[in-house]
Write a protein that binds this DNA or RNA. Structure first.
Length: 459
RNA sequence: GGCCGGAUGGCAGAGUGGUGAUGCAGCGGACUGCAAAUCCGCGAACGUCGGUUCAAUUCCGGCUCCGGCCUCCA
């Protein structure tokens, strides 16, 4: 089995072969740091984290670049509204982003470049584009001239005629062609700006990714990923800029995760179904959010529902129950079970991988001797590792409580009640035993009597 | 208007040219002081109309419905 990925560029599943046999380069579009990450932002983070883990197992070295966009008009607007300095907003938002996605078990990328630290590279690239006749200055702006590129539109499969016919936005008078897009734009004194051959200004949206991908991965690299909504114009324009400036192919494989909906509707602030990752983390463990996201193939639209999250939690409850009940066997690092690995290598088929997780769970629950139990448990843990779940101690999983939940009973009180119930049971006072069980249940504690004694968990 | 996805059992969600997804829910059983957990078993699907084929949920075409994109939203 070898890695197969669906390439948006060719609209086909293709066997993945990296440019260099021992080193894979991957670029994924990261957040614009003006506000909390929402669940739509979380999907690519989680999906490409699974890919990053997979690539890291298949190849000796993987360079995973995910940018931070810290210059943007939404950030400027936020600063204007709040009166806070831009640097404060972007630093704080970046930190919150890191905290949120760490809770989703997303590994940090190899390199996380910030746009504002790469202005010189962007200016250099724009200069090349101007020199080669692919860009022109007009009224303080520098625009990419799409007419100068013969095969513009190859990724999104749009022709210039279609785009002109479908244009819904008023076209700036300084554009030669309605499809031309901004590489550089002038900044008034109150806006962030950098000196450039075209005066003080700031970069357009697309150029940062072209510049930073080139800086860290080279002109041509293996994988470029992001949300499907970025196919056009963002990724199309990255291709145009990079290929025209470099005279070399850009990313070879393009991966795009599907859209995210909420309860069957498009997520939007006006519909009131807009959730930040933080809000979700207050009501569910990050691992449950992650598993929920992975229960649909990345290429499909994902419908975020309360029911789906509940199911993901229930699945993790079952998995952690089995892990807790088998905690006495030796932990040993083993290979990812072949079926799970094969599912992931087939264009990241995480739902199928999760189905195999259930089979591994069944094997663990049915294991009769310690050797079988240890083998099943280690296999399950290895499979979880591949998906970025089952990473914590089962006891911790069952202690999880929503933020702001009533404090309820502490662990010592729970232990005391369990002990009292045990005494009652020993003396056949089942009425008392059941009363204690009921008391605990009213405090959200569920008891399980097992061969190794009584365990508890928060419902 | 142009372009792109999707439609699978009560729900979620893979996959496949010809018997089984998987999970949740439901039903029956084992186990348990009672439970929970676990195990065993059961029922249940491929939007619609045509075409190709010995055979289509799977390939092709029409239709219906749903979702999205069309210059800065992952």
């Amino acid at each position: 089995m070898a890695l197969v990925l669906y390439n948006t560029l060719t609209r086909k599943k293709e066997a993945f072969t990296p440019l260099r046999p021992d080193h894979v380069g991957m670029y994924v579009c990261g957040p614009t740091v003006y506000d909390r990450a929402h669940i739509g932002n979380a999907r690519p983070v989680i999906v490409f984290d699974v890919l990053y883990r997979l690539l890291s197992r298949l190849y000796p070295q993987v360079t995973y670049v995910r940018n931070i966009t810290d210059v943007d008009d939404k950030i400027n607007q936020r600063a204007k509204d709040s009166g806070e300095p831009i640097a404060v907003i972007t630093a704080r938002t970046t930190q919150m982003f890191h905290d949120d996605i760490a809770a989703l078990n997303a590994l940090p990328p190899t390199i996380e470049p910030r746009a504002t630290a790469h202005i010189a590279q962007m200016i250099a690239m724009i200069e090349v584009l101007v020199a080669k006749g692919h860009a022109y200055a007009a009224e303080g702006h520098v625009l990419f001239e799409v007419g100068s590129m013969a095969d513009y539109g190859q990724l999104s499969r749009r022709s210039m005629d279609e785009m002109i016919a479908g244009a819904r936005v008023e076209i700036a008078p300084y554009k030669k062609n309605p499809g031309d897009f901004v590489l550089w734009k002038p900044s008034s004194p109150d806006l962030p700006g950098w000196d450039s051959p075209w005066g003080r200004g700031r970069p357009g949206w697309h150029i940062e990714c072209s510049a930073m991908a080139g800086e860290y991965l080279g002109q041509t690299f293996d994988i470029h990923g992001g949300g499907q909504d970025l196919v056009f114009p963002h990724h199309e324009n990255e291709i145009a800029q990079s290929q025209c400036a470099n005279g070399a192919p850009f990313a070879r494989t393009w991966l795009h995760n599907g859209y995210l909906m909420v309860e069957g509707e498009k997520m939007s602030k006006s519909l009131g179904n807009f959730f930040t990752v933080r809000e979700l983390l207050e009501n569910a463990p990050g691992e449950a959010i992650r598993l929920c996201m992975l229960s649909t193939h990345y290429h499909q639209p994902f419908d975020w529902t309360a029911e789906g999250l509940k199911q993901a939690r229930a699945t993790l409850d079952r998995l952690y129950t089995a892990l807790r009940n088998s905690a006495d066997v030796a932990v040993q690092a083993v290979d990812i079970p072949a079926a799970v690995q094969a599912a992931l290598e087939d264009d990241l088929n995480t739902p199928l991988a999760i189905a195999h997780l259930h089979e591994l769970l069944g094997a663990l629950n049915k294991a009769e001797d310690d050797a079988a139990k240890a083998a099943a448990r280690n296999a399950l843990l290895a499979a979880g590792q591949a998906l970025g779940v089952l990473l914590q101690d089962p006891r911790e999983w069952f202690k999880w409580q929503a933020d702001g939940a009533a404090a309820g009973l502490d662990e010592a009180e729970i232990a005391a009640l369990i002990d009292a119930r045990l005494q009652a049971r020993k003396s056949k006072n089942f009425a008392e035993a059941d009363r204690i069980r009921q008391q605990l249940a009213e405090n959200g504690i569920v008891l399980e009597d097992g061969p190794q004694g009584t365990t508890w968990k928060r419902a």
